[in-house]
């Protein structure tokens, strides 16, 4: 069962992580999975301080990844109308080679992170799904827009393993590490 307490602990954890990251005291990574008091699940979402050197693009991952493989993938949050899930720690990651709606000069677009004008096949080749699981292997209950404050079009790198159900047509990464890049201009 996912309880409010869990959510609270996840929130606390992320806040602590953010603080540590901001202070620059972390060289590699922090894993601060907080144990819930007698809880059935532990939240695991590691904020990475730097981009892992092994990180590849989504497009590359699509071609080479196989279920169970350890992987680090970089891209932007976007490529669909609502790329960040509402109550689960999940989002859609897309390569920057994809033409986002804000890059085609449509100023009034309500979803600039969408890729509605991109070739469907090209888009499919450069897009993957990211999901953070709890220790029970269930989707982690977390609104990522609130914590850690993700937004569409953010540049991110995730580390994790390729999900067992992942197929060449549908790459799903079960992630545990997240690196968010300071805003690129």
């Amino acid at each position: 069962m996912i309880t409010k307490n869990t959510l609270f602990n996840v929130t606390t954890f992320i806040l602590v992580s953010l603080f540590l990251t901001a202070c620059g005291k972390q060289e590699e990574s922090t894993n601060a999975g907080l144990q819930n008091n007698g809880a059935e699940e532990t939240a695991t979402l590691i904020r990475l301080a730097t981009v892992p050197s092994s990180a590849i693009s989504v497009g590359q991952a699509r071609k080479t990844a196989h279920p169970g493989q350890k992987i680090a993938v970089s891209g932007q949050i976007g490529g669909t109308r609502s790329p960040i899930a509402e109550e689960y720690a999940s989002f859609v990651i897309t390569d920057s080679v994809i033409l986002f709606c804000n890059e085609i000069g449509d100023e009034g677009c309500e979803t600039p992170w969408d890729a509605c004008c991109e070739d469907a096949d090209k888009l499919a080749e450069h897009r993957a799904s990211v999901l953070f699981l709890n220790d029970n292997g269930q989707p982690l209950n977390l609104n990522m827009k609130q914590q850690p404050g993700l937004s569409e079009l953010d540049y991110v790198t995730v580390t994790g393993i390729v999900a067992p159900g992942s197929t060449p047509d549908n790459l799903i990464i079960h992630a545990n590490g997240l690196y968010t890049e300071p805003t690129k201009l």
């Binding site: 899930a85 989002f91 859609v92 999901l131 047509d169 549908n170 799903i172």
Partner: peptide, 18 residues
């Protein structure tokens, strides 16, 4: 429970669902 359906649509990008 909507979130579960929303998550499904994001996990099955190959189906191109909203």
């Amino acid at each position: 429970s909507y979130a579960s359906a929303d998550l499904f649509s994001k996990q099955r990008l190959d189906l191109e669902l909203s």
